[in-house]
Design a protein around this nucleic acid. Structure first.
Length: 170
DNA sequence: CTTAAGTGTCTTT
DNA sequence: AAAGACACTTAAG
C-alpha cells in the first residue's frame, strides 16, 4: 500500500511517497497543493490507491536525511519505476558521492554510449522521480551553466552549494 | 553573441 | 510505425 506525506525541510516543501520503508518518490517545491497535484499526475499509471497515512518513523528518518545530506543511507531501498536504461543512469548517480559533479556527456561516456548521446542521458536523468536520493542536482552543463532542474534551479543551487561547503569543511 | 545539426530515448499519435 | 519532445553539446555564422 502506497502512502504519501507532505512536510517541510530545509529548502522548502517535500512530498514523499513510500510503501512501508521503501521510498518510491520524492518531489520538492513550495506549495503543498501543487506537489500533491503533481504527484497524482505522476502516478496516474499506478492503480493502487494512495492514502495520506503517515508512517512517522519513515518520515522522520527521511526528514533527517534531507536536512543533513549525509551519505546515502543503506536503510532506504529504492524502488525505481522506469526502463532499464533509466535505471542504469540513475544507478550511476546514486553511487556518486557528495561534492562530485558530472556532465551529461561525461555520464553518457561512463555508460558506454559515446559523448554525443548526452541528450538521451539528460532525458533519462530528468525522468527520475526521487529527488535528492537520486542526486541529479550533481549534474552540470559542460559549459559551466547550472543546467535544468526538475524541482527548480534554486534548490539545485542550494544543494550544490551546501555539498561544496561540507566538502571544504572536511 | 546566435543558429543549426547531431544525437538516443521516451511519449504520444 | 512515425513524429515530436527533451534538464545537451559542438561547430559554424
Amino acid at each position: 500500500m502506497l502512502n504519501y506525506t507532505v512536510f517541510t525541510f530545509k529548502f522548502g516543501t517535500a512530498l514523499a511517497v513510500y510503501e512501508d520503508d521503501t521510498i518510491v518518490y520524492i518531489s520538492l517545491g513550495f506549495d503543498n497543493q501543487e506537489l500533491v497535484q503533481e504527484m497524482k499526475s505522476d502516478f496516474k499509471a499506478i492503480d493502487e490507491p494512495i492514502n495520506a497515512n503517515v508512517d512517522q518513523k519513515t518520515v522522520e528518518s527521511l526528514k533527517h536525511y534531507l536536512n543533513n545530506q549525509e551519505t546515502p543511507q543503506p536503510k532506504y531501498s529504492y524502488h525505481l519505476f522506469g526502463t532499464e536504461f533509466q535505471r542504469n543512469v540513475w544507478d550511476c548517480l546514486i553511487q556518486s558521492k557528495r561534492g562530485e559533479t558530472f556532465t551529461y556527456s561525461g555520464l553518457a561516456e561512463k555508460l558506454g554510449l559515446g559523448a554525443n548521446s548526452s541528450r538521451a542521458v539528460a532525458n533519462a536523468v530528468g525522468a527520475n522521480k526521487i529527488s535528492i536520493l537520486i542526486p541529479c542536482h550533481r549534474i552540470l552543463r559542460k559549459d559551466g551553466d547550472l543546467g535544468g532542474y526538475r524541482w527548480g534551479p534554486d534548490i539545485k543551487r542550494k544543494l550544490l552549494l551546501e555539498e561544496a561547503q561540507s566538502l571544504n569543511a572536511v
